[in-house]
Design a protein around this nucleic acid. Structure first.
Lengths: 335, 335
DNA sequence: ATCCCCCTCGAAAGCGTTTTCGAAATCAGA
DNA sequence: TCTGATTTCGAAAACGCTTTCGAGGGGGAT
């Protein structure tokens, strides 16, 4: 059906060996023969089969992008998309094809990690959206396929990660609020199955400590990164301490939910309660009030993950990449 | 390196043929031999190479997901992600692997369509986010690889599509506004390189006509689906006709931009100007005011696209799928 | 004229599967 | 016990490519 290297060889009156050499830029071939072959191949609109090539070279030139919980409308929703873009862009730029595989722990549709890698001969894998208790994780850590984790600070023989300095990010948020004069600052954290939650909690604590503010149990609530949970949490926090004047949310989406509920409760933002979000979603700039947030370089996560991967595939054992957070001021924390 | 079918054969003391047969459920094999082979394969954690299999079977069991303008933060931003999820879910459910390829017309990084298909032996392709003037389109239409288009109403020999009834959707929006008593209704449309824009324009016109309202040139503005353009357009429209009391936006994002700008101009929504969006983004429910919108079954787009694909791969020539829009009321059009 | 080396190219093996074709073994019926 | 059908299995080719190894030819040096 499809046109093969043999056809080109026949057409050019040479052997397949010669065609292969011409196409792959080997030196031991007469320049004019090469030109002729190239021309014929182009005219015939010939493109070598990546499959056949993979088989013989034992390299697929493909990397996997595995996302847990993609089907969950959930947590990283807005975050994930940009990371996907980054991974895609860099993979393409480097000549790798991307195989997307979104798994879903709940529905048991998980294909064992190893199997996927073996089946498609993946040269490396970018893994994201994984909970701390996800079964994938164990498999990955002792598999031999290079793996770059996004927002999961674990390393192993063939495994490293890229993430934000979440501790620093959370601290930035708290510092910003302290500068604005707040002393009673709540935290609406994400669920504990997310690695980032622990770090943001830590950063929150450090931020308070540096300001000489003792941490209080009732200032911390746990949501699930979703809008609704942000609303519920802020209500709970206010019930526990009506004097609360500020809250730091571990996701912009929860921040939006919180602001929404605050309005319903008759509280003004930022006059009565100031709010800081996390993620740096574009839409936060266009809300009323616009939301102060810790911005993550999401696209770059993807790019760097692929970069880590190719370095690992080259035999290196690169250090994890920890990107710096930035605070973007909005109206939700006043001027 | 990796364990192959030969290893299993040797282990079991049979030929590779027999192993292949056992694994693939052929009947001509003694039940107990099959069991033994299966056991051995499982113990060895063996998984057949999809690559080798593809080569000999000339079927890759892989479909491509090609997205133009993914790198554009742009237009379908929020829409695309859900469609991707749908494609992924259904592809997995049906046992196909997904190869993601986001191209970018601007940066010329486009890999010719045909080449991609040939290289990876794709059995079918889902194509989305393509402009009317995109070079891909021509290639696709006369290629022989089955192709399912999303939101691009074109058919060809091996090509069909899934989309929303955009005419009906726009009409729903206008009807809703008319019911609320509006007579001067503007349209903030998307750019004309999007297929959907033409249809939404048509639906807008029909909606007005049915209400006996003559369409006026200056009621129509063209944005690019982005927030900023929504803001600019509403300002222009109001400049052209200060009496405007309602506007229908061809994307939720533009609607948000428009509402934002309206507030800045001292107009109340919906009291002074009512706004309807398009897409049915979740976040529209959580804004103040929440946005009335035409909801698209985005996830289902992906699912149906894959369904179309497999039917085409089976030799059928299925009819296009046109899904029905639904209006979801928010506060932006009053009660 | 001889020898050696370099340049250019082809034959063939091999990658891990599936599948065709036929052979061996088993079984039924007589 | 023999025949023929049926069941169970193996040898080998094929898929499209890369790569090793070596052959042939031309040119320069001796």
């Amino acid at each position: 059906m499809s046109i093969t290297i043999k056809d080109i060889a026949k057409q050019a009156g040479v052997s397949v060996t010669t065609v292969s050499r011409a196409l792959n830029g080997y030196p031991d071939i007469k320049p004019e023969t090469r030109q002729r072959i190239l021309r014929i191949a182009a005219e015939a609109n010939y493109h070598p089969s990546a499959i056949a090539r993979s088989l013989v070279m034992k390299k697929s030139r493909a990397i996997g992008l595995i996302i847990s919980e993609l089907t969950d409308l959930g947590s990283g929703y807005h975050m994930l998309f940009d990371v996907i873009r980054g991974v895609n862009d860099q993979a393409m730029a480097l000549g790798y094809d991307l195989i997307l595989s979104a798994t879903d722990p709940e529905q048991q549709r998980e294909i064992p990690y190893i199997e996927l890698c073996q089946r498609r001969q993946l040269e490396g894998v970018v893994l994201m959206g994984v909970r701390t208790d996800d079964p994938y994780l164990k498999e990955v850590l002792d598999a031999s396929v290079p793996c770059a984790l996004v927002d999961i600070p674990l390393t192993a023989d063939s495994c490293t990660y890229v993430t934000l300095d979440n501790v620093q990010g959370a601290k930035l948020a708290v510092q910003h609020l302290v500068e604005r004069g707040h002393r009673r600052i709540g935290l609406i954290n994400g669920h504990n199955q997310a690695f980032v939650s622990r770090e943001r909690w830590k950063g929150y604590g450090e931020g308070l400590k540096e300001a000489g503010i003792p941490l209080r149990e009732e200032w911390v609530a746990y949501g699930d990164f979703e809008q609704e949970s942000g609303a519920e949490c802020i209500e709970n926090l206010l019930a526990a301490d009506p004097e609360l004047t500020a809250v730091f949310c571990a996701s912009d989406i929860m921040a939006i939910g919180a602001i929404q509920r605050l309005k319903q409760l008759g509280k003004r933002v930022p006059e009565d309660v100031a709010v800081v979000g996390f993620d740096g979603l574009e839409l936060t700039q266009f809300l009323t009030p616009s939301v102060t947030t810790i911005v993550q370089p999401r696209h770059r996560f993807g790019v760097e993950a692929v970069n880590l991967l190719v370095r690992m595939m080259a035999g290196e054992t690169p250090e994890p990449i920890i990107l710096n957070p930035e605070l973007r001021e909005g109206q939700s924390t006043g001027k």
